[in-house]
Design a protein around this nucleic acid. Structure first.
Lengths: 191, 191, 191, 191
DNA sequence: TATGAATGAGGATTCATTCAT
DNA sequence: TATGAATGAATCCTCATTCAT
């Protein structure tokens, strides 16, 4: 029953329910089951929660991806599974992602943010490197850079769905197909 | 000396300086040189500024793109010019873009946002459609959807540079090359 | 119905009733009949009231002294009337005096404090100078400096009464006599 | 390494640095190097420190005075030495004196305060009584009362210097001369 | 004795919004 | 249209105090 983690967990929940601005510290501590003052033992302000939340988000994303992407399938299938996973996380946490992004952008925690996001980049980089060494994708690709671009692309495509469109699930299905095509051609994936 | 525009201009400035949450209406009106009450003659709330700001951003972006993308060059070159333009806008306004994104995400102005962003999507869609009809890119591409994905991809790639990396200009140069390759392969551009 | 003055007047009242620490801003604004936020239009904090309050205190003191000290009496009598007056003010506001002193001491308003207290010093200096020119007090006295010392002495003596002693009025009577003797001898007053 | 004394010493330091109101118990215990809860083993509240602090101040003052006032000099010289001593203590601890004064004024510890200050009064009373029996000062003086007045006068004069004036040391020199004259005439000192 | 994490009532402070001018 | 002083509900944050260890 670690109180700090409790607070972060509660904040994730409340933030994604009502947004940052409408969330009161008192909402968070109530959800976390700790006293008002306890919050300030661990965090000087609402926004200082962001790096901790971002960390959790990335963990969740990686966990989901690792759970969804199978070892014994083709690279092409893995891409589909990655896209599926990211769309899934975005569906569940899209508001929170936007808020983290904004929260980080309006603070000075960017360095931390990069550190936090790094495991995700590394994981995708490794996947691309492997595919490259097996000759399944273009030789000319810079894996680390492409990993970032690809993740950015998929996340941005997923967010578009959950921000703008109406019949989310149906739109998501179509958007995923398009992203899939887009990425595979971009990578020069050989089925 | 149109007061409404003054307010929007002031808001753009202050928002990108201190973020949305930390910006008070009083900061905006002071910067705009109008009275506190005047704000409410034009905008019912702080967040209702967002669509107006987004509109300005999109206008700026489109103006820059239209200024940079030449008529009499190959589609491949146009892609490069679009990437260049978006990186340029992002370099100058990356903080604001994050804020608009967040501001829109945390409000109910999404419909307006989509409307505002639409001209940009349409412009790129038209470009893609033309390229498709000329057989320069893949037949299988859904132009509207791909336009959105592509814009999302390029913007996200550009933001990565201006958010995280250190030697911005150099990194931007490399990132643009990679994005260019990525997009062209994705689209199946035939040089 | 000047709101700023209202706030100061209310603060004087509440402070002397319940002390600084126990006084809430909300008490002051309630007494002043203004809104909570109005306080902050004029004063950034509770302690920033102090110079304004000190000013009022000095005004009150001077008013009482000028009311009590007659023109057509001997210098010796005037001293007695001054002592009487200061003991009177101290009796009514001794807590406030201590608080102002503390409030000023714990802030950076000392310069202001001196400026505020100055009229009082000047008034007594003038009295001493007149007495000196009439040969009623010692030639060797430095009037400005002695004015300050004398005021300090009388106030400190008065405060001793209202801080420590029990039968205030009786003690005050005796203490005033002693102070009177003390001061007159110090000044070398010739009856 | 007596913890109680440590706390008092730390409180003296922090109080004179930041004032009573702005001093938190947590500041004091941090400075004292003890735990938060330890404070409450020795003192029921912040203000209950005051008598202990006052005691230290009076001890210091008496020590300095007893060290400076010589046995084998005239009463007149002793007065000068007392004035010197009080100015010295005030120079070093003037902020603290104001704070003790305020702290005591705003509490119910006045009885203790009087008890604590008493040795000082007694010491000066004895001196005056001796001088009186030797016929060196006025017969009519009430020694206990005059001791208080005199101490109050000198302290108040000293505080004026260290509160308001700029060239402290020079001003102090002049002020001391004036106080000396003032007191000696008041007492009717015969050289 | 000693600790220090946890508490939560209490009060300071903010700032979007109104409205008389 | 334009003003800006005034509002006061909303919420942040502090910090003296407690108590299980």
């Amino acid at each position: 029953m670690n109180k700090k983690d409790n607070i972060v967990r509660a904040a994730v929940k409340i933030f994604s329910e009502k947004g940052i601005e409408k969330t009161k510290i008192s909402d968070i501590v109530k959800e976390a089951g700790v006293a008002q003052g306890t919050f300030y033992l661990y965090f000087p302000s609402k926004l200082s929660l962001m790096p901790a939340i971002a960390e959790i988000m990335v963990e969740k994303t990686l966990t989901i991806i690792k759970g969804n992407v199978q070892d014994d399938v083709s690279f092409s299938t893995k891409i589909e599974q990655i896209i599926d996973s990211i769309f899934m996380v975005t569906r569940d946490y899209n508001e929170l992602q936007a808020l983290i992004y904004a929260g980080l952008a309006s603070t000075e925690h960017l360095k931390e943010w990069e550190a936090v996001y790094n495991p995700f980049y590394v994981w995708v980089s490794d996947l691309l490197r492997e595919a490259q060494s097996e000759g399944v994708i273009r030789e000319s690709i810079h894996v680390e850079r492409t990993a970032k671009i690809m993740i950015g692309l998929i996340e941005s495509a997923a967010e578009q769905i959950y921000l703008y469109d109406s019949d989310k699930d149906d739109q998501a299905r179509i958007q995923k197909i398009e992203v899939n095509q887009f990425v595979k051609h971009a990578l020069g994936v050989k089925d």
